[in-house]
Each structure stands twice: as C-alpha cells, then as structure tokens.
Simulated scan of single mutants.
Amino acid sequence: MAQTEQFMEPAGPGTRVAETDTAIQRMRALRHRWPPGGGGTVFHRAYLRTVGGSPTIGGGGGAHRGGTAQEAASTLEARLAERYLSALSTAAAGGRPPECWRPLLPYRRHPDVRPVQFALAGLHAHVAHDLALAVVDACRTRGCEPAALEGEFERVGDLLALLEERIHDDLMPGAELLTIADPLTHLVSAWSLERAREAAWSAARMLWRLRGLPAVAEELRQQTDAGAGLVVRFLLTPSR
C-alpha cells in the first residue's frame, strides 16, 4: 500500500452488502496462516469469532443517501475490515504495514506478554487508526459527509465493544491468577475503547475536511498512526 494513497476507491452500488461477507471469508482463509502463539493470531481469531458470528450491523434505521441504513453500516463495516486485511497483506508481502500494526503482526508469543495484551493491542490499532480511515473510505463510497454515517459509526462501535467484551471474557486471567498488584491489571485498566472511538471519530472528520489537501491529510494520518503505534507498544509491555 503506497504511502501517498491511503484511501480506498469507491465500490459499485451493487457490491456493498456482499463486501462484508467477502471480507469475513478472506479472514477465515487467513486464520491458519500464522503459528498458534503469534500475537497477530490472538487478535485475528478473536476478531473473526466476533464479526463472523454476528449479523450485519445496522439492520434498522431510516433511509440514508445512496441506500438503506443497513447498506451504510455494511459499507463502513466492510471498509473497516478491508483496512485490517490490507495491513495483513502488506506484512505478508514483506512490505511495511501501518506503524500501529508493526509491533503486532510479526510477533511470536513472548512468554511475558499475555494473550489479552496482544488482543487489546490489535483492537487499539484497528480502532485508533483503521476506523478513522474506514469512515473516510465509506464517505467516498457513499458520497456523503461523516455526519451522515454517525449512526452507523455507533453501530460498528457496538461490534467493537462486543469484541472487547469477548477479549476480556476469553483471554483475561481469572481472579485466582490475577491480583491487584499484577502489572496486567494496570495495563488493561489504562486503556479505554470509548476514548479510542472518540479520537477515531474526530480524526475521521478532520481527514474528511482535509481531503482537498492530500499532503496535509497524509501528515495527519501518519501522526494518527504513530500515536496508535505508541499505545500498541505500551499495551505489549511484558507484564512480569
């Protein structure tokens, strides 16, 4: 993925709902590409269990420009998955994925970095970097302003909240293994999905306003990527 062109091309109107299913199928095809202990594998499997087991977001709501609320949500959900898949494809081809994904994708399981850390690090990269760009991609596809997708943004946020809940339920050590003094307690409690989502929405709106100034927009994207990468590295701090 070239550094000078970071936005997806619009998809045809007949492909929007099918795009989400296609992205899920691609994720399923990739689930055995990494060793079981890899950091990227931990996030990938949690993500796939969540999106693969949920119906398309946005089944209700009123009409939106260019189609129904379900189509709008499918567009945003598909664009978000495409951002993640693009990072995977770039890394697999030996290229340089976004900075926020670099600490995670090549990692093998570090004995002192727990699975929940890898999963939350992937979730942060996906929200703090990919989500903002996915909103811009969806706006270009549908020919609308970010404000027209605010409801769909919240619905996709509900899916991400479900993913966070699943990560905690499946990967967080039990009370018998985790004490208040455990560094993992502080790492996990220091991160907030809600704050990451709010920052992503602000970044998306700013990137959309800067779409006529591609060099400035790219500078903002790189700054957003670098900030997300810093938090990812923090979340991957060995907890012992």
Rank of each mutant, 00 (worst) to 15 (best):
33 R>K: 11
33 R>W: 12
34 W>M: 09
36 P>W: 04
39 G>S: 13
41 T>P: 04
42 V>K: 03
42 V>S: 06
42 V>T: 15
44 H>Q: 11
44 H>K: 03
44 H>F: 08
44 H>N: 05
46 A>F: 10
46 A>V: 11
47 Y>H: 12
48 L>D: 09
50 T>G: 08
51 V>W: 14
52 G>S: 00
55 P>H: 12
56 T>A: 10
57 I>S: 11
57 I>T: 12
57 I>E: 06
58 G>S: 06
59 G>T: 01
60 G>L: 15
60 G>T: 14
61 G>E: 01
61 G>C: 01
61 G>S: 02
62 G>C: 08
63 A>V: 11
63 A>G: 09
64 H>M: 08
64 H>D: 02
64 H>Y: 02
65 R>V: 15
68 T>K: 03
69 A>F: 07
69 A>V: 01
70 Q>G: 09
70 Q>A: 14
72 A>Q: 02
72 A>G: 14
74 S>N: 07
75 T>F: 00
75 T>N: 00
76 L>N: 03
78 A>N: 08
81 A>S: 15
82 E>F: 11
83 R>D: 00
83 R>H: 08
84 Y>K: 05
85 L>H: 02
86 S>F: 10
86 S>C: 14
86 S>P: 09
87 A>S: 15
89 S>E: 12
91 A>W: 06
92 A>C: 00
94 G>W: 00
94 G>P: 09
95 G>I: 03
96 R>G: 07
96 R>C: 09
99 E>Y: 12
100 C>D: 02
100 C>S: 13
